[in-house]
Design a protein around this nucleic acid. Structure first.
Lengths: 250, 250
DNA sequence: CTGGTCCAAAGGTCCGACCCAAAGTAGCAG
DNA sequence: CTGCTACTTTGGGTCGGACCTTTGGACCAG
């Protein structure tokens, strides 16, 4: 060991990439609320002269922020990067990646739903605004009159997201959006949505909607819990029936 | 309205960027499980000849995937882009951005927690493995003997994440990690962690841990619900006490 | 008004060169 | 043979500069 001559010791150091440095800097500034939503960042070429980095580097940093939902980039004159606070979308996206990539057991999705939706219903019954009710009613109508499978699933999804939205909790809303998407794609493949399921769903939705309208949190929780649980059980049953061909997992 | 002469209606159309096309293609392939975890993607220069895109474009696409947690990029010889399935981390990150950026009401975080943690506890009581228990015990010991505020918060956090992990539901785990971080940074600023709070926390944790060890889901849910609710109430109280200077919201 | 033309600003793409990091390899001193 | 050094190779990271494409605005002709 040649280094023993000096007592100076250093811990392993991180050498961040230039583009990350810029991205971090901008991210902090945006998150700290320095610039209000919609503020345009300087044009790329301007950032180049300010930071003395190359345009490639600047662009990479901007791209990172765009993926993270912190800015929105428009091309063309009067285009550029505009500050944006991340919304439910970005959460939903990353959750979707997790679910799809990890081949997550469908059971996990349902478990999560069972944890979350009752709370959404409770909050909705407490915080709902007139506009929220209108959206729920619209979804109720749409689902009753839905012909195709797609229409049914879409209306179903709208209602569930509507409930989450009515709760006015952005975290829960984001999670619900992601879960809904996952459920949609899954239920879409299996053909377990028969007339009976539809009828039951419509009834359940209506009763929850009523509880929300009447600002009755306890009823909302109770009914939503029952509904989600039943749905999960039914879906799992179909799952099992369909999965017989698949060799035992684990 | 000038457009009324023609009845033809078109919806806004997407013109994807080249780099997005590549990113989407690769993303689909990765998510569909074509390449197992750790598979190296071709080097950038190789992708250039294969796709006939410029290196800039290729690199941008890779950068996007990296941010989404689908690949990990290493420099140097034998480096490159390696396939990676997104984990809890990426979900936690995007949730953190949402929470920080939107100046989310602390209440939202607590609401979400109250929705999720009881379920985590229930699942943990059902699915826990020996390793999970060991981790919980370690956290219990650490929190009891913690001196500094940081040590206490860290141990607290470890325990809660440990419970989530023991439930073996990756979605819930990801959400919990994110929430924990948020709670950590918040509680860190306020100085509401006095000796009494510590004692209560230690006791609550131990009783939940016991329920998990004894595979008693109902008790686990009950105790966790009480604990989280109490914690949220206490935090909110402090919040209000501290926030007197702030003008009334809404 | 309607449509066409042109211009300027800004992002999007490409090229080619060079820098830096990591891992292997050859060769040399002891 | 051992161990160190120096070189080479393979890969990502950065740079600068050219050119393409999109978009909004201004101006002009019908």
């Amino acid at each position: 060991m040649t280094a023993d001559r000096s007592a100076i010791r250093l811990s392993p150091m991180e050498v961040p990439k230039a583009s990350d440095v810029l991205a971090n800097e901008l991210r902090e500034r945006i998150l700290s609320g320095d610039f209000p939503e919609g503020t345009p960042l300087p044009p790329e070429r301007e950032l180049v002269v300010q930071t003395r980095m190359s345009r490639t580097t600047v662009r990479e940093a901007l791209r990172v922020l765009e993926v993270q939902g912190l800015i929105r980039i428009k091309a063309g004159r009067a285009g550029g990067a505009f500050v944006q606070q991340p919304g439910e979308e970005s959460v939903a996206n990353s959750l979707e990646l997790l679910i799809r990539g990890r081949q997550i057991r469908l059971a996990s999705v349902h478990e999560t739903r069972e944890a979350i939706e009752p709370t959404c219903a409770r909050l909705a019954a407490i915080n709902r605004m007139p506009g929220d009710l209108a959206r729920l009613d619209a979804a109720d109508v749409a689902i009753a009159g839905s012909g195709s499978l797609e229409a049914f699933l879409q209306a179903n999804l709208d209602w569930h997201i509507g409930v989450a939205t009515a709760g006015h909790n952005e975290i829960l809303t984001g999670i619900m959006i992601a879960l809904s998407r996952a459920i949609y794609t899954v239920t879409h493949n299996e053909g377990f949505v028969n007339d009976e399921v539809r009828a039951i769903t419509v009834r359940a939705h209506r009763s929850v909607t009523r509880a929300i309208r009447e600002k009755d949190p306890d009823a909302a929780v109770r009914r939503m819990t029952r509904h989600v649980h039943a749905y999960a059980a039914a879906a799992l049953a179909v799952e099992e029936r369909t999965a017989i061909t698949v060799p035992p997992v684990e």
